[in-house]
Design a protein around this nucleic acid. Structure first.
Lengths: 224, 224
DNA sequence: GTCTATACCACGATAGAC
DNA sequence: GTCTATCGTGGTATAGAC
């Protein structure tokens, strides 16, 4: 029954990850020192470098732990949406909901540290520091390909290139919403206006779907 | 004719600003040390703290130097657009062009360091570290108010609150485009697709205008 | 293999001499 | 205004305990 031989090692990595995620979300990456993390996790400073190699690698590990389930959920929802509807493809709105919802949902997820974590996710999506970019690209590539194919079927008049641009814009709208929720106050003249996740998704879907459906831009459409 | 008594001090501040902007754009804020900046500018390390007070204050100064002309240009273009057209207000597309163009234009501006600077601007818009947020808010408030009023006239059916959300989304699309230009490659499967500024503005305007024109979201419109 | 103690160097900031 | 000296803190590398 005594499992200390394995608890000792497994728990150390996870305790570091948990403490790091919490502190990163609260203070940001650079403001959080390894000594603060290891102090919080009750391990030695050097444990981070032993288990992860560097602070950057620890950041990657923290992000990857949340990224993978989120992207899996996106693919699962899209699969569920498309199943057995070859001649009746899902609407743009349905597709976008599959894309936005898993990301925005993490906001209000009470379990674990994902609530606040969504902030640092949004930041990192927009400011990938060299090595972090690789992580996002590798984790996101398959998701991007699937959703681009699904959307392309729903917006057949758009060139592949302009579709890429519009997905780029819509991802920016999403990332900005996730990372900069308070920014709305700036536009709203001080009145708080944050809604629950479902309303947030609905607003974002409405905006992005209309943007995707816009007629092709003159001079771009022909350049496929 | 000897101006060394003034050249000595004025040039120091500017040399620091120029060197800092260049290095910040290349490596990011945290990866750039004050020693690197002052070495590049051929001044003493302590000169930064003397002239600016802290590294954070230097970052603010670098950003403010570019932010102010950009926002002024936005307001100038909008004024020019609205002049003497009280009964024929500018279209959404015209308004958005006034908003996006000055920002995206900095990309290709050959003069000074604004070319690469746009990257750190995009980053900072999305990840404002406490003190930086204040700078953006104060610099951006008047711009946001003017453009919100102009857009509100063109989309009268939208509640003020949903208009705020949609401006939030459109700003996210812009910021993401500025800071994460390479991200398109991810969506485009490796094919480079960057266009010149005018085409970029056209694409962004097309997307955002359609998003702004979308019918109000059910359940939100009534909550003004 | 895991983990700790500790030393190392670069960083941002400050005080005080000039 | 500018410089040197110095402080506290940061990330990291290593040696060795278990």
């Amino acid at each position: 029954m005594n499992r200390e031989w394995v608890v000792g090692t497994v728990e150390t990595k996870d305790r570091i990850l948990d403490a790091a995620e919490r502190l990163f979300a609260e203070q940001g990456f650079d403001a959080t020192s390894l000594r603060a993390i290891t102090g919080e996790a009750s391990v030695n400073v050097a444990a981070v470098n032993y288990h992860f190699g560097s602070k950057d690698a620890l950041i990657e590990a923290v992000l990857a732990r949340r990224l993978e389930p989120m992207n899996s959920e996106r693919l699962r929802l899209l699969d569920e949406c498309e199943r057995g509807r070859d001649d009746d493809p899902p609407s743009i709105e349905e597709i976008l909901r599959c894309f936005f919802e898993p990301a925005l949902r993490m906001h209000s997820d009470p379990d674990s540290g994902s609530a606040r974590f969504i902030q640092i996710f949004g930041r990192t999506f927009t400011e990938p520091g060299d090595r972090l970019r690789e992580l996002f690209v590798s984790q996101f590539r398959v998701v991007a390909r699937r959703f681009k194919a699904a959307l392309g079927r729903s917006v057949p008049d758009l060139s592949k290139q302009e579709l890429s641009w519009r997905m780029h814009f819509m991802i920016g709208a999403m990332a900005h919403t996730m990372s900069n929720a308070e920014g709305l106050r700036l536009l709203d003249e001080g009145r708080p206006s944050r809604k629950d996740v479902d309303e947030e998704v609905a607003l974002l879907v409405r905006f992005a779907a209309a943007g995707l459906r816009a007629p092709a831009t003159a001079g771009i459409a022909g350049r496929v």
